[in-house]
Computed example of a mutant assay.
Amino acid sequence: MPSLKLCSSFFLQLIFTLFVFDLANAQGLKVGFYEETCPQAEAVVKKTIVPVIAEAPSLAAPLLRMHFHDCFVRGCDGSVLLNSSTHQAEKDAIPNQSLRGFEVIDRVKTALEKACPGVVSCADILALVARDVVTAIKGPSWQVETGRRDGRVSNISEALANLLSPFANITQLKAGFQQRGLSAKDLVVLSGGHTIGISHCFSFAPRLYNFTGKGDTDPSLDPNYIARLKVKCPPGAVAPIVEMDPGSSKIFDDDYYTMVSKRRGLFHSDASLLDDSETKAYVINHASTLGSASFFEDFGVSMVNMGRVAVLTGKAGEIRKQCALVN
């Protein structure tokens, strides 16, 4: 017969295991959440997205960013999609004014409401669309956990306070990710999303013309690249755009890390990845290897991690009928 001490030890270990298991499942997300309530949900999303990206591949980047910007403010609750009659919602904040594709999300929502009324959340639509647009431009695929519900609050000041700046240094970036339960590896991997898309000149112009307030350039930026950027972005220019990853901004690959390793990351936040031993090692490794397999796998893992940030599940929040409006 086991001793009382042994039984007590086993009981405590069991309680601890159950507690950890409960924490791991507390958020209520899982792959295949809609298997019974809307089994065709993911197929509907993909069927809607594929022709859109085939016709307009430049929409992939802003639709991917939309999921990022949603999760970093109030968590992944679809709040970035809400409209405000007084222009005080998250989407009205300056960092979100470059987002495009809200009408695509509405198109997906309409298709899902027709197939399964009142079932699939707008927050989950953002997560599924992010995966499908990446896959559509030759990037990786991954299993998306679903089960999020939609928030009812969207505030411009919260977006301004919580979205990480393209001028952020590595300390600020790591702290911002850590606050959301994300690691330094998640930071460097998700930064790889800058392999697609464009940016307006104002997002990086200080690096070219006034880095320290003395009319100087950012010493961490390759001088030859600075010269090329100045041609596209003359002093005071706002409207012109520049490819994030010149030559392959519509194809999802790991060329971003080659650019950063050559000191040609467009944002200061890109350059900052070389200021930390862990993030720098990842950049250098993926800049010197052929093929994107390991980055693709890592990207899927980190997207799942980000998709868990401060989610609403169970009876919290709501399932919006229209993504831009609370019920």
Rank of each mutant, 00 (worst) to 15 (best):
F267T: 00
G193K: 00
V129H: 02
I15M: 14
A205R: 03
V120S: 04
P57V: 08
S220T: 11
V108Q: 04
M303L: 01
S277Y: 06
P234M: 06
M306F: 01
H194Q: 12
M66H: 03
T86R: 10
D245Q: 11
R131N: 05
P95D: 09
L12H: 11
G247Q: 03
N224W: 01
I125D: 02
Y209H: 13
L6P: 06
G181Q: 01
S269T: 02
T135N: 11
V311R: 03
S183P: 03
A41V: 05
S98T: 13
T110R: 14
K185C: 04
S288L: 13
L208W: 05
K138Q: 15
D298M: 07
L64H: 03
L221P: 06
R131P: 00
F19G: 15
S220P: 00
F295S: 07
A127P: 01
D132V: 00
F33D: 01
L14E: 09
A281R: 04
G213I: 06
T171K: 12
V238F: 11
T195L: 03
L221K: 07
G176N: 08
M1T: 11
G176S: 08
S154M: 12
D106L: 14
M303W: 00
P206E: 10
V104W: 05
K321G: 12
A310Q: 09
N210L: 02
E145M: 12
S294N: 10
A89L: 06
G78Y: 04
D150E: 09
S302L: 01
H200C: 09
G101N: 07
G300F: 06
R65D: 10
G314W: 08
Q322N: 14
S261G: 07
R263Q: 15
H268F: 12
E278D: 14
S248D: 14
